[in-house]
Every structure is written in C-alpha cells, then in structure tokens.
Design a binder for these strands. Structure first.
Lengths: 330, 330
DNA sequence: GTGAAAGCGCTAACAC
DNA sequence: GTGTTAGCGCTTTCAC
C-alpha cells in the first residue's frame, strides 16, 4: 500500500505537521526530531504524493508549452532551452503539439489551463487574438512566444523580423537582383506579416519590381516550399528570400536538383535554423539569418516563472534581434 | 473566486454527486437534470479542477518521457509521435531532458515517478540497470525506449542494430575497402554495444583489418565526431561507418572541408536522421540507414498506455527494424 | 433517478 | 518546539 505522511508521523512518534514542516523546511524543527523523521521516511520509503500536494497548495510546479511543431528544429531547440530554465527552478514542462492547427491549439489551451499547469507558454498559430484570449481564465499566467499580437494583454518574447528582411532585400538588390521573390510562412502569423511588410518596403525603397506574384506563402511544414519555388521561377526571379529554416533547406535542395547555382544563377537569403549542420556548407553561397532561439526559450522560461510567482507585475515585452550573416567571402 | 462543483450543484438545484455523474457520464441522469446542470455550468463558467480530480482518482492522465537530448532531431521526431498518440487518448506528455547525464536522469525519474505521472517512458543514458531500477517504485508503469537492458523486467521498444551495421561493413568491403573505421555513440549504451559487436563480427567474417584503433566513440552531441574523424584518417581508413545522425552530418561537412570526396576517396555508410533534408543531397554518394523513429514513438506511446490501463499484462518487447538504403545508382 | 457524506494526502492556521 | 485539525474539490459508496 501507499505510505502516507501519517504513517511516517506514527513511526517517528510525531505529528503530521512536524513531518510536513521537516520535509519542507517551513518552520523550525529540532535536530533530534528531524533525525527521527528522516529515519522513519527512509525506513518506510516514503515519497510525498505530488498530486495531493498540488491539490492542497494549488501549485502544480508545471508549465505548459503550446508548440506549433515539435519536430521542427527551431522549436526543438526552444523547448530544450525552456526545459533547462524550468527544471533549474523545480518546474516541469508539459508539451502540447498543435501542428499549426487552431482547433488543436484551442483544445490544448483549455486542457492545460484547467488546473494542470501554473502557467502557459504559447507560440500561437491563431490569427485572431480574441479567440485565443477567450480560452484563458482571468489572471492565468501566460507568456506569448515567437508569435505575438497587437493587443498588449500578455507578456511576450519575440524576435524582430523587420530589419533582417529589409536588409536581405537591399543586399540582393546590391548584387544586381531586380525581381526578388519571397517565401513567407503562414500568412496569419504576426511574424510572417512583419516580414512581408519589410519586404514590400524594401522593394519600394530600392526601386525593384513590385509584383504580387513574387510573394508566396508556405506553411513551414515538410514539402511546402517546392510549389512556391516553381511559381517564383516562372516569374523569372533573380533573387529569393526565404522566411523559415525548413523551407530554406528545401529551397537549397530544389536548386541543386534543378542545377541552379546559388550565388551565381540566383541569389538567396534565408532564415535558417540555429546549429543545423545543413547550412554550414552553404554559407559562402547565400546570406543567412539566424534567430536567437535559445535565448528566446530561456527568456520565455524566465518570464513565465516571474508571472507565476508574481502575477501582479506589469506586462513585459521583449524583442530579441536576429543575426544577419552575409555570405562568407571566398 | 474559483467556481467549484458545489457552486454548480447549488445553482442547478441538485447534489454534487449528480453534477459529477453528469459531466463524467458515470451513472444515469435524466435529460432534464442534465440540462439544468449544463446550464449552470455554462452560466458559472465552471471547469473541473484537474488536480483535485487526479488527487481523488489517483489518475493524472500524464506520461513522463525521459529524453537524452530534446534538440536532437531523432528524439524530436520521437517526441512528436509519442505526443500524438498520448493526446489522442486524453493524456498529456511531460518532458525531461537529461543531456546524456545519468545524474539528471536519476533526479528526473524520481521526480516524475513521485505522483506526477501515471507512467514513464525512458530512453535511458544509464549503463547500470540496477541503478535505474532502484529509482522506480514497485509496480510503476515503465516502458524503455530505444535503449534497453538485458534484464527483461520492463517492457521495451527498440530498433535492431546488428543487421544494418553488419551489412554496412560487408558492403564497404564489397566496394574494396580494407580498413573500415567506425564511430559509435556513447560506449555505455546498449545500442552502441550492439553496433560495435556487429562491426567486429563483420570485420572478422570479411577478413578485413582488425584494429582497435579503427573503433572510435563520440557522444552524439554537437562537434563530437570531428576528433574521431581526425584519428580515423591518420589510420588510413578507406571506409567509415557512422552510428548516429548528428555525427553523420558532421562527418559529411568534415569531408567537404578537407576536400575528401565521398564515394571516391572514401566510402561512407551512416545512420541518418529520418526526414532531415541534409542527407537528401548525399544519397548517391553514401549508403544510409534510417531508423523508424515515428513508429518507435507511436509504439512507445501505445505500450505505456497499455501498461497504465492494464498493469498486470506480461512484459512486452518490440524490436523494430531499420531501413538500409544503398546509395542511389547514378 | 438522486442525495448525503466520507475521505483521498497534504499544508497551514491556530493553539499550547 | 510541536500537536490538532480543518479543509482544498472532487468521486463514489451507500442509502433511499
């Protein structure tokens, strides 16, 4: 049978209160009493029941993370950073995968906010802030990660998207490109919107061909870049900007297969995944943009812990910056 | 304030028992009572408290997964498959990252087994089965994943490692290689041991150079392959077998940098990560071994659910097979 | 077809 | 310096 705190108390000849205070260091207990308690605990092999404890205290010591795509290296690395931060503070991480599906996100948020976690990290795939907002109980600690909304209701950690894309277009123009295409992520996401608007502005500023057909959207999942590339090539692109790591590697493979040489037949700039070996071989043929994923994860972890332990603090927003890496000079 | 089941009962004019039975469909409730209950729930915005529920029932509806390296694509894909399976059955996934550190594994197992989860999936980094075994409360549902032990105490899902490595060596020999090196993973892991023993046997069977200096071990983390490769090249290897995906991509990059041509200057076979674009460009220059990661994750999820819901079933062992992909004929 | 009430294991307020 | 005890929100047995 399960051994409870009263078994320990009985064997140690003390009250349950003393046992509780001993193991939690929550009030003074004399050395000799402590020893008796620990001896009893050891003898019985007692472990405090975590669910009784969270029930009683209302603290679960867990944080939920709503992720759009676990198997994506960008989020995998982020999850790792989040977990490292949380476990250092005695918290556990519960993962929910949405596969960029708003319905799944909806269901998961409800489930996790209903007493399973103390707080929620959300990299949302929703277009509509109100739809997301409605799912969250008043006062429940939430931090938005990577994808944010105009409404500044929740704390957020994200990466600035405007500058690197603007610069990409300018650099491609500087290399002589005239018709620059762009492959964005899901159109409904804030990050995509920001990137596309940077693209438009740079195209205008640099006096390049302004053509809606040059703007394509993928879904950042497997095999979504290919059709975009087909379309862009029929538009006679001489430069391409890709907004996401997985689609970047698909682009490189596509060019390879078609015998199109990067940096010669076509110029490429792309967001790439941090620490993915794939890109190491192409850094002399294309510019890359690297997001500070680990920092994103760490900051998200720190923020949600703050909100959990101190819910009254004002909303906090952090915008990190990506590293723009011009191609290596050969 | 928090709305509880008694608030609902009061407003609906019924007992808490009826509310509970209504929302759980656990005994007959008349249509009109049901309606009253649901109306009250809606009016008050009631959500049953998950931790009270798990406390009461003893069921947490969560499974813990002890993972050696979350950011590794192999495990990322596996986690995704596990999560998909669990969430389809109303379970949540709690992730703990060990970074191949036995102490972290020890701590995490204790934490997760102490009332946080209904069961545990473990891809262990331990060498010693007893050390692992001691951490697990009697009767606690556990399924070992990917890395197993000789003691058949727990159910397990793994991939056979012998045959693909044996075949690798034979194929390289068939291409004329005489001095075949191998880069294994962490020496303490069952998977590594199995692979190295397959290598040894094939080397003997094919009459190749049998030289301990040709056997190197990496740790499957970033930048662990390089020093192994340096050593193997000074041994005048003409064929190399790499036992892990991340180290495989490092090997390819290494060869690139040194100007060593795969399939010409040196022959290569490697375990590669499922669905990683990186390898797509090299399938005509090397043989690849692809493990059924998704199936591994799915099977692990299914198995742990079975053990949770039916703990008396006998121990179950499943061994999946990897796909050996000879290089593409050009 | 429904209600009353016990009690899961723990923490913490109050009492001494 | 330690003990007594109420009660967290829910499920479930027993009773009618």
């Amino acid at each position: 049978m399960k051994v409870t705190i009263s078994d320990v108390a009985k064997l140690a000849g003390v009250s349950t209160a003393t046992v509780s205070h001993t193991i939690n260091s929550t009030r003074y207990v004399s050395e000799e009493t402590k020893e008796k308690v620990y001896a009893a605990i050891k003898e019985l092999g007692y472990t405090p029941d975590a669910s009784a404890r969270s029930f009683r205290t209302g603290k679960k010591k867990t944080v939920g993370f709503i992720v759009p795509d676990i198997s994506n290296k960008f989020f995998g690395t982020m999850i790792e950073a989040v977990e490292t931060c949380l476990s250092a503070h005695g918290y556990h991480l519960i993962i929910a995968n949405t596969k960029e599906n708003p319905e799944r996100e909806e269901k998961n948020i409800q489930l996790l906010a209903a007493g399973l976690c103390d707080g929620l990290l959300i990299a949302s795939t929703m277009e509509d802030f109100d739809r997301l907002d409605r799912l969250i109980p008043a006062g429940f600690p939430v931090v938005l990660v990577d994808r944010v909304f105009d409404a500044k209701k929740y704390s957020s950690i994200c990466v600035s998207n405007f500058q690197p894309i603007y610069r990409s277009v300018c650099r491609l123009a500087g290399m002589g490109a005239k018709r620059i295409g762009i492959i964005g992520g899901l159109p409904r996401l804030s990050s995509t919107a920001e990137r596309i608007s940077a693209y438009r502005q740079a195209v205008a500023d640099c006096g390049l061909d302004n053509d809606e057909a040059l703007i394509r959207y993928g879904d950042s999942m497997e095999n979504s870049a290919q059709s975009c590339l087909d379309e862009l090539l029929t538009q006679n692109c001489d430069g391409i900007v890709v907004c996401q790591g997985l689609m970047a590697s698909e682009t490189i493979i596509y060019m390879h297969r078609k015998g199109i040489r990067l940096g010669e037949d076509i110029e490429l700039v792309s967001f790439v995944d941090y620490d993915d070996n794939f890109y190491r071989l192409y850094t002399n043929q294309m510019d890359t943009i690297v997001q500070p994923v680990e920092e994103l994860g760490r900051a998200a972890g720190e923020q949600i812990l703050r909100r959990i332990e101190n819910p009254e603090e004002p909303v906090f927003e952090k915008v990190l910056t990506s590293a723009y890496r011009p191609r290596d000079m050969v």
